[in-house]
Amino acid sequence: MNKWYEHEGNQPDADAKLMSPLVFDMACVQAVTISVLEWWHIGKLQSTSPNINSSGSQLPSGQVQPRRKGIVPPSLPADAHPPVILAADPYTSEAYRLRTSRLCSSLSFREIAEGAVPPIAAASNEISSPSPVTTTDAEPHSSAVEKRPIDMVFCSFALHLIEDPSELFALLWELSTKSKWLIVIAPHKKPEIKEGWGWTKWDPVKWAPCQMLDQQNDILHER
């Protein structure tokens, strides 16, 4: 998120949507939604209280922030709008709802590959009722998404469960028609995304395209 904001969201001519990125969370068990919202929250605090550590806590005046592995978000404008987050998972939508108090579609990979997306209206719907709620009504070829492309799609290593390469291609190609960035959170090299599947691998350090097999600047976090 920091790299994205540095190169795309913090430009003099950046329009309003870059201040409120549209995110599609397809890795609902990976706490993507919580991380994105924390990034935005801490970034806004940075603009008013610079002495903020990576957990969002304010440091006493004059105290030097200790060196730590946590990544502190950049200072965001005080009037920055929160990210708009769509979420979909056919198996963990209930767990996502309980963890985030937000709606989650039960769309499958196949349905998304066929053009379905969660309703954008559901992105801002926080759940106040304790009863189980999920959004199952998809909007194939949603006019709202067509008018505003998705900024980032987050997927998990569950993509490697798609055994048929043609099905994986169909999903990735469809996502490439609706969104600009694809971030895959995985503990290994799979899934293998090939050239011509709608995506160009990006080097986050050089902020430039690179070869699909190039792993030099892949972002790795060791436990």
Rank of each mutant, 00 (worst) to 15 (best):
G43A: 11
I183T: 04
I42S: 13
I71A: 03
K3I: 11
G115P: 03
A88I: 06
N2L: 05
T48Y: 14
I120S: 13
S131V: 06
H188D: 15
D137N: 09
A208T: 07
Q216V: 02
M19C: 10
R110F: 00
P50S: 09
Y96Q: 03
E192N: 10
A14Y: 13
M1K: 02
Y5L: 01
C155V: 09
P140K: 01
E174Y: 05
D214N: 14
Q216N: 02
M19P: 00
P77W: 04
S176N: 10
Q215A: 09
I112D: 01
V153D: 05
T134K: 15
N2D: 07
H160Y: 09
L98H: 06
H81K: 14
A16T: 11
A80E: 13
S128P: 02
S108Y: 08
E222N: 09
G196A: 01
E146Y: 13
H221Q: 08
R110C: 00
Q46P: 02
S57N: 14
G9I: 04
A80Q: 14
S75V: 04
K206H: 05
H188E: 13
S93I: 01
R102N: 09
I71P: 01
E167N: 11
S124L: 11
V205G: 06
E111F: 02
L98P: 02
P74L: 04
Y96L: 04
S156D: 03
P77Q: 06
A116R: 13
W173S: 10
V145G: 10
L161T: 05
T135W: 09
H141Q: 14
H7V: 05
G56W: 06
V64N: 00
I185T: 10
S129Y: 00
M26N: 12
S57F: 15
S128F: 14
K201C: 10
Y91A: 02
L159V: 05
Q215W: 06
P204R: 02
R223T: 08
L103G: 12
T200G: 03
P83W: 13
V153T: 03
G9P: 03
Q215S: 12
D137K: 07
K44F: 06
L159E: 11
S143A: 15
F157D: 15
H141W: 15
H141C: 08
V29A: 14
D25P: 06
A170Y: 03
F24T: 00
P118H: 07
P132L: 01
S156Y: 01
P82A: 14
T200I: 10
P149A: 13
F24Q: 00
L171R: 03
G56Y: 06
R68K: 09
E38G: 03
K44D: 06
L86F: 14
F109S: 00
L37Q: 13
K194W: 10
P83E: 13
